[in-house]
């Protein structure tokens, strides 16, 4: 019942070609389970999980799982803006999906502007070693080109899933610590958390405006 305590809320978005396994990655991260059959995402789905960064600060991740299908592209673009981080997901068994990564990064950057976001390149399905089309070095080289982290995962076996989210969360948090990112009015990428959403003092939220008017 009680909303877990968190210090910050980060909004992260998952982008990448359809069927690369974005939803499976998220489902494993939030439920710890892998589902063999998964319907294609319609528009966007939402997930949430609490995670602790290295200094023990509790971060609530609000995860936006976008549809990879081309037909939803115009709609999913709408959702980019309020994200502080983007996981660019590709399928190591699908070379085309890696080739589209620059397009995804470019599009995300364009729509997140004027804000900045942390990107991370995530390769999926490494359990299907036989069907692998993308060499680790190639993906790592691409990530290096963009100066972002690269991580290979398997949602089926639960390899590195946690690690992928932890890495991007830590990077966002570090940028907050260094002052590069901060909480901004009218931008939902980063929000400060309260110990709980408090509704017993509804005036509290109206406080800044109130003090402005009474002067």
């Amino acid at each position: 019942m009680v909303e877990p305590i968190f210090d910050y809320q980060f909004r992260l978005i998952l982008i990448g070609d359809s069927t690369v396994g974005k939803s499976s990655l998220l489902k494993y991260f939030t439920d710890g389970k892998f589902f063999e059959i998964s319907d294609p995402t319609v528009g966007v789905d939402f997930f949430a999980r609490l995670i602790e960064v290295s200094d023990g600060t509790r971060i609530k991740l609000q995860l936006w799982d976008t549809a990879g299908q081309e037909r939803f592209r115009s709609i999913t673009r709408t959702y980019y803006r309020n994200s502080v981080g983007a996981l660019v997901v590709f399928d190591v068994c699908n070379k085309k999906s890696l080739e589209h990564v620059p397009m995804w990064i470019m599009e995300a950057k364009r729509h997140i502007e004027p804000h900045k976001a942390v990107f991370i390149l995530v390769g999926t399905k490494i359990d299907m070693e036989d069907e692998r089309e993308v060499r680790r070095e190639d993906a790592a080289a691409l990530a290096k080109f963009y100066n972002i982290s690269y991580i290979e995962t398997s949602s089926m076996r639960g390899v590195n899933v946690e690690e992928a989210f932890r890495t991007i969360t830590q990077e966002v948090y570090d940028k907050i610590q260094s002052g590069e990112f901060r909480v901004e009015e009218g931008w939902d990428g980063i929000k400060t958390g309260f110990s709980r959403p408090n509704h017993s003092y509804p005036l509290m939220e109206a406080e800044p405006e109130k003090s402005g008017f009474c002067c």
């Binding site: 319609v42 528009g43 966007v44 037909r71 939803f72 115009s74 709609i75």
Partner: peptide
């Protein structure tokens, strides 16, 4: 409703 709206668009 949200998904219905999205689908209605495409």
């Amino acid at each position: 409703t949200h998904k219905g709206g999205e689908l209605a668009l495409i």
